[in-house]
């Protein structure tokens, strides 16, 4: 059979049309991929130690960071408090993540948070500035509106437009490193709530519906990897805390690619029913992740466990 130019064109058009309309996943559905757990839960180690073990279990940092890519590590540095008071992410953990990113070949690793207290005092006293600079990351300033760009959020219910930090938009990979805390209004703050530190005008969220805004924001861009620091957990008087009386040393850490799932597990650690935290359900409705913790593939790792 002789193929004419016309038939060739016809067939190739059909083939491209098929490839464009059908998700690639379906085409390659039969090809077995290496399956990683949905959530890694690690316990009984120092924050850095737990991360070392946990990141291996989820496929290593190479799975997320390709050589030459730029990375944003977004810890919680909201408060002018010391690491022992549990209001901010543990600096050792942030430093460890940066080391892993470096080893994976990241070209540039930036860290920032739009802090609640004065930026410089938060950066200093949380110990994160020192840890980041020692590990080879860059602390970015966040206390001026000029660092933020206005972006539209497709599909956002109340959050149509938001001013986002340039680094959040420019970085290739986003690693969210929240610390698990009680929160006076939303009951719990971890992964999704931590994104309030990359935007400029938080008061807008408070004014027009905090829970919906928290669920709306990841529609713009979600984290590629979420690491919930539950080493020192603030169980009351959050998110700032008043004294060491408010925190409990739980020595836990959650690592997941699904921020909603990590938050759901974090709720359980705080002895909260995930249904009490309104924004989780709202985020699940947007298909940002799953709150179905029972049917998820969770791998629990115990460091130093006596057999």
């Amino acid at each position: 059979m002789k193929t004419s130019r016309r038939t060739l064109l016809k067939w190739s058009l059909l083939l491209t049309g098929y490839l464009f309309t059908t998700p690639l996943k379906k085409v390659f559905a039969n090809i077995p991929l290496k399956k990683y757990p949905d959530l890694i839960a690690i316990k009984d180690g120092s924050p850095a130690q737990m991360f070392d073990v946990g990141i291996e279990a989820i496929g290593g940092m190479k799975r997320f960071v390709r050589p030459g890519q730029s990375v944003l590590v977004k810890p919680n540095i909201g408060w002018n408090r010391t690491p022992g008071e549990g209001a901010n992410t543990q600096p050792d953990l942030v430093a460890k993540i940066i080391e892993h990113c470096k080893a994976a070949g990241a070209s540039k690793i930036v860290v920032f948070d739009n802090t609640c207290n004065t930026m410089s005092s938060c950066y200093e006293n949380s110990g994160i500035k020192k840890a980041v600079e020692n590990a080879g990351g860059i602390m970015l300033p966040s206390d001026d509106e000029k660092y933020y760009l206005e972006k539209n959020i497709p599909g956002g219910k109340i959050l149509k437009k938001v001013k986002v930090h340039k680094a959040f938009l420019e970085s290739d990979v986003i690693i969210n490193v929240p610390t698990l805390k009680h929160h006076s209004s939303t009951k719990m703050t971890a992964s999704l709530k931590n994104f309030m530190g990359v935007i400029w005008d938080r008061q807008f969220w408070h004014k027009y519906g905090l829970n919906q805004a928290i669920a709306d924001f990841p529609l713009l861009r979600n984290a590629d990897l979420t690491i919930v620091d539950a080493y020192l957990v603030m169980t009351k008087n959050g998110p700032r805390g008043i004294s060491t009386d408010d925190v409990i040393l739980k020595k836990m850490q959650l690592i997941s690619t699904d921020a909603v799932l990590a938050d759901t597990a974090a709720c359980k650690i705080l002895n909260l029913n995930p249904s009490e935290v309104t924004y989780l359900k709202l985020a699940e409705d947007f298909k940002l992740g799953s709150t179905d913790i029972k049917n998820s593939n969770i791998k629990k790792i115990y460091i130093n466990k006596k057999a």
Binding site: T244, L249, I269, I293
Partner: peptide, 15 residues
């Protein structure tokens, strides 16, 4: 009398 160090909990993952 606030403790200088936070209280330690040894409970397992509740999930």
């Amino acid at each position: 009398n606030i403790p200088k160090k936070p209280s330690i909990s040894n409970e397992d993952f509740p999930f």
